[in-house]
Each structure stands twice: as structure tokens, then as C-alpha cells.
Amino acid sequence: MAAMAQNKTKDNRAWLGVLPVMLIVAFSGVIPLMTVVNYSVQDILDFNTRFFVGFEWYRETLTDPRFIDAFLRQLGFSAAVLAIEIPLGILIARGMPTQGLRASLLLVLLATPLLIPWNVVGTIWQIYARSDIGLLGVTLNQLGFSFNYTAEPLHAWLTLLAMDIWHWTSLVALLAFAGLTSVPAACYQAAELDGASKWQVFRHVELPRLKGVLVIAVLLRLMDSFMIYTEPFVLTGGGPGNTTTFLSQYLATMAVGQFDLGPAAAFSVIYFLFILLFSWLFYTSVMRSEEDS
């Protein structure tokens, strides 16, 4: 045993196998990120004219009320998305048949929204929710609700949330379904013999086995909702006013619309750091609770 452990530490040839991945990550992730950091400390007038400004763009971004508002909106959106999609996805997965034709049909149906490109989803909902010609908008108005997502911030938010839930709950449901199929039938039989309630079966039999896939689901939805761009851009264009302008949209306006490369780079680094922090905090807390249990 001791000899095996010694061999493991001495034989590092396996690292050669990881080398191509490291090179690809460096080429597509690390080097571009370093370039963005370089941009973030300079005032770039054109390709050859740039001045070192230190942390000035960072200070400007962090004290910019529009950035703070967009950041708070982003946090609210991600929190709402997670609070709805995760329980709903689990609920759908628990209600699904585990085998047979119905199970296959439901799986295909669930996967369908995931196959639709973001801009198409935005367009579908943009038309669907319109108060003049959209099925949803017209129906709500016929029912007596004065619904207009282009003028009312609350309606715009609800439409955005409904769109995101429609698009992405399937992902959570499919992951949870995969987790649930791995629960051995013997566990359910044992719980039944013990007279466990439905909630107890979920809490003590299913949930511990779902933890792994739920970590992936929450991380994917957190990161994806935190960098949402295309759907709100197509659906609301950030409006009415700036009420649905999220971080990435504000960033795109700055970088591509105004070509403020220095401030946009500082914004990107801050944005990246927050995503890194949230993902790390979440991952660490889940791993800790797993170790504790």
C-alpha cells in the first residue's frame, strides 16, 4: 500500500495527458482574461494610443449608480430564477413516470425548450406577450388585467421571469429526473416499511441522492441567469426605462455601443470576480454540508 502511494506521487506522467486541456484553457480563457485586465487599467483611445490610469475605471464603475442598479437587478433576477426553477424542476421530476412510452415522450417534450436558441425564445415571448396581437397579452387584457410589458416595469419583470422559467426549468427537471432514477427501489421499500410520509421520503431518501445533480443545476442556473443577455435584449430591450437592464446588457452598451474599452474591461473584471465568488461560496458550502453529513 505504501509502495503504491509512493508510486502515485512520483509518477507524474499523467500530467502530460492534461497538457492539451491546459493549453486550450490558456488560449481561450486565461490569455483573453489577462488582456482584459491589461485594458482595465488603461485609457484606450485607439490601437496605438493608450494611457495608464491605474484603478480609475474600477473606482468609476463601482461608484456608478447605473452599475449598482444593474447589479441589484441582476441579483434579484438570479434569486427569483433559482427560487422558482429549482423547486419546480424537482416537482416535475418527481411527478414523471420512470419508464415506458410516457416517460420517453415527456423527456422529449421537456428537452424541447432547451433546443431553442436564446434570441428565438426572446422573439417568441416578445410576440406572445404583446397586448395587441400576442395570445398571452390579449387574453390577460380580455380577462380584465391591464397588461402591457412594454410600459409597466412589473409586467416586464414577470414576463422575463415567465420566459426564463419556460426556457430553463426543463434543465433542472431533467437533471433531477436523472438523479431520482439512481435511487434504488430498496430505499423506497424500506421507507414504506418504516411508514415514512411522502415528505420524509423526499427529505431523507431522495434529497441526499439528488444533492450532486442539484449542485450542478443550481450552479448552471446561477451562472447562466447572472450573465443573461439575449432574451431580455430581444424581449424588453432593457426597458421600460432601465428597469430590466441587467449587467451584461449595460456592459455591452459600454463596450460595443460606446467603445469605452477601459471602463468596459474594468466592469468585466468586476463582473467576473462576483461570478467567481458566488460559485466558490456556493460550491464550498455544499461540499462542507456533504462532509458534515
Binding site: 485586465v37 491589461n38 487599467v41
Partner: peptide
């Protein structure tokens, strides 16, 4: 040059 290096970074 395209990486826009500065001495501090």
C-alpha cells in the same frame, strides 16, 4: 502588443 501590456500588470 495586442495584449496591451503595462509594467504594473
Amino acid at each position: 502588443t495586442w495584449m496591451a501590456w503595462t509594467l504594473p500588470t
